[in-house]
Design a protein around this nucleic acid. Structure first.
Lengths: 224, 224
DNA sequence: GACCCGGGTGACAGACTTGTCAACGGCGGG
DNA sequence: CCCGCCGTTGACAAGTCTGTCACCCGGGTC
């Protein structure tokens, strides 16, 4: 889910934005001032920041430069001031877009889509490291020492469930259901078989796995 | 030097933009209508397109989708129309920013800076090399040893889906949906048939494909 | 030590998928 | 009308994956 951080000191605007964005499938966090915005961004690492310039504690461009110091997350600025000088300052500070209030909510949503689309296309491919191997779930690719490793469909499905729950113990029953279907409950031999194959292909020392762990009697766990 | 393609049918606006942009160190090309814009973009591969929506030959969004077919170059739209619906349509078609006329030239330049700042994610050419063949998605043309190779409509659609997701595994279900429509789910024989034809026409050794790869049980993948 | 139990490993036959050849019918151009 | 091109379909050998079996290991229990 795409995460958006909304920074606005006016509660009703913040609430309106939260409602509209949530209704369109975004995960919304809000912050009422610049200091909390910077802290929140460092915590959740959003995919987009919607920033109102009229903040009580610091100037809007300071927030922008504060963010730009360590992240290239898209920043969409909202402002009541339509003066060109303001826009130029915000854009040159590192903002990606500038919308003046009052704004049409449909247009804002379209600009949000445009900004997040860029972010995704710009190529953040979530890769996971396992032993000497690199797993890229988005493009279904595993590399080890620069060479490609091929996984079968079943191996991918099993690996995906584990990787999507990093650090969490996934029960045998749940793994069987997710990979083979709801009619499979006790076929733990399938799991042993395919876990062994995954370890052989991914772990540095398949006999002593470090990331794909067995929890005897319960299930398996992926430790990052 | 950053290259900008200005698309505008009004000579005085095009000239004003050219002068202003050139004065700020950009290399400017201009095109007076949509068809020439698409051809010019395929030729010089700009770092930014400034597109006026009021073109004589085709609708503005058509130009946008035409560009988005093969490139993710930033597109900044200029328009006299301030209606939200227009903006939403253009942004959702793939535009990155939308400025209504009359605009402040300083603000436009700031938006140009913002758009080009993040721009340079490389590897964005309209032509793709496959074996001994050269595929130009923009103008729908394949050349091999200097000679033209003809692809049918279905072959183009299939090839396009794969080429637009370089390195990514595309599931057979997804391929069928995108090329034949949502009612096709299990007709994998179509895929086999057309993948074979594409390999015959594009790959150096069709029996041992290097770029158009099969992932058994899952789908196909284009490796650059 | 003998036994049991859950897990890991190698091998293999059957089921499924894939690449390929061949053929059919619709459609437009000459 | 005939012809060539294209999309669709059927059939089948070669190849790949899956489920299953037999067997091993290590730890806990008596």
């Amino acid at each position: 889910m795409i995460k958006i951080l909304v920074v606005d000191d006016e509660p009703q605007i913040a609430r309106a934005l939260r409602i509209n964005l949530s209704a369109h499938g975004y995960e919304v966090t809000t912050a009422p001032d610049g200091a909390q915005a910077l802290r929140a961004a460092a915590g959740v690492v959003p995919d987009l920041v919607v920033l109102d310039l009229g903040l009580p504690d610091m100037d809007g461009t300071e927030v922008i430069t504060g963010l730009r110091g360590w992240t290239s997350v898209p920043i969409l600025v909202l402002s009541g001031r339509a003066a060109s000088a303001e826009k130029i300052a915000a854009l040159d500070a590192g903002a990606d877009d500038y919308v003046t209030k009052p704004f049409d909510i449909g247009e804002l949503l379209a600009r949000v889509r445009a900004a997040t689309r860029r972010g995704n296309a710009a190529g953040d491919s979530p890769v996971t490291e396992i032993g000497g191997a690199t797993v890229n779930l988005a493009v279904r690719e595993v590399k080890r020492d620069g060479k490609e490793v091929r996984l079968t469909k079943t191996e991918w499905q099993l690996l995906e469930v584990l990787l999507r729950n990093p650090g969490k113990l996934v029960g045998q029953r749940e793994l069987l259901h997710r990979v083979w279907g709801p009619n499979y409950d006790r076929e733990t031999n399938y799991l042993r078989q395919y876990m062994a194959q995954l370890r052989r292909k991914l772990e540095a020392d398949p006999a002593r796995p470090v990331h794909l762990l067995t929890e005897p009697g319960m299930g398996y766990r992926f430790r990052p």
